[in-house]
Nucleic acid binder design. Structure first.
Lengths: 193, 193
DNA sequence: CGGTTAAACGGATAGCCCATCCGCTTCAAT
DNA sequence: ATTGAAGCGGATGGGCTATCCGTTTAACCG
């Protein structure tokens, strides 16, 4: 059962498509698959065969970014300062969204196209869950917060920064400012005075 | 210079269109103007004459909501408890976004189609600015926060709640929980321990 | 009440984008 | 060199936006 005869041109085309998509994402252009095909010098059919939908292509573009986050998260798991570990991880998450436009929509999407994406998101959730649990056990984080809240909140922060300023210039700074504020709120609640 | 001969059928059609749009917004369907025309029993041209773009129609639908917020904001201005005034206002803002799907996109849009929308948003900004200023003067709010941050942050919270749960069932509860957390962070910062 | 006029109407239509389908090409294994 | 399947490409259908213009109709007037 020798399954796969790998074709070289197929791989080449796939890479071209992803490269073009990367470029478009970086310059803020929305992915239009016919457009991607033209720029990559391939037929529309080729694009659609490799990526059944724009979402799938976007997920592919975002994969690297997700992998980086997972990697950082795993490093954070080795930090003994539970609050620093959690907050550092969350900061990274927001920074990544600001730096790479492909991340936010993929992170916010309720359902994935690629299995790999689901896998990576699952890893991130698990890491976040562990970090949150440790911090909570250490008593440095308010208890009424679940691991499933982390991704939505980080997406919300990134979105808020985007709403604040159309220009991505100071978006990173804004996002950081907002996140700082939220993180203060995440800590064990102050007396209600 | 008797300018305007008002036509009754025009007004009637306009109302029908807005009513249909309201319904669609309420059931979460995106506004497609051809579709709106069909449902309202008018020609496409009629819809486009009254509302040059879907955004314009959405803004019209959102107007009531914005007016309600302004009204509440003006009441909040009479509250002598500066923190309660600000926080109550912000809570309303988020609740409104959860309750009415037309509000978020209009609030988040960097530019408006209708003058009325601009006017209302301006009012809201001014109210928020005043409330924030008072609270800051009273020392109950962290200083590194501008009035122009309020709308983005509230949009971010509403967005986060939406990301959390596709179902609008518990969206209000989630949004409130997130907002509470953020509000804790908005207060004069706790010692960095 | 009938005439006049401009406002309003409506739908055919052009343009754009998504997505599919299928005949042709090209690779790779033999 | 042969062959068959994997891959290619673009013509094409379908849906949505937005416009344009010939027709209808409400409002005003004599």
């Amino acid at each position: 059962m020798a399954t796969a005869r790998q074709r070289t041109d197929a791989a080449r085309n796939r890479e071209r498509i992803v490269a073009v998509a990367r470029g478009l994402v970086d310059e803020g252009t929305p992915l239009q698959l016919n457009d991607v095909a033209r720029r990559a010098g391939v037929g529309v059919g080729t694009v659609y065969r490799h990526f059944p939908t724009a979402e799938a292509l976007l997920e592919t573009v975002a994969t690297t970014c997700l992998e980086d986050l997972v990697e950082h998260g795993e490093q954070a798991l080795t930090d003994t300062d539970t609050r620093r570990a959690l907050e550092g991880f969350l900061i990274r998450t927001v920074e990544a969204q600001v730096a790479d436009a492909s991340l936010s929509p993929v992170a916010a999407a309720p359902t994935d196209t690629l299995p790999r994406t689901t896998e990576l998101k699952r890893s991130l959730l698990e890491i976040g869950s562990t970090l949150l649990d440790r911090a909570r056990r250490a008593g440095v984080v308010r208890p009424d917060l679940a691991a499933t809240d982390l991704v939505p909140l980080m997406c919300g922060i990134a979105y808020a920064a985007q709403v604040h300023s159309g220009a991505p210039t100071d978006r990173a700074a804004t996002a950081r400012r907002y996140l700082t504020t939220l993180l203060d709120g995440l800590r064990t609640p102050a007396p209600p005075g």
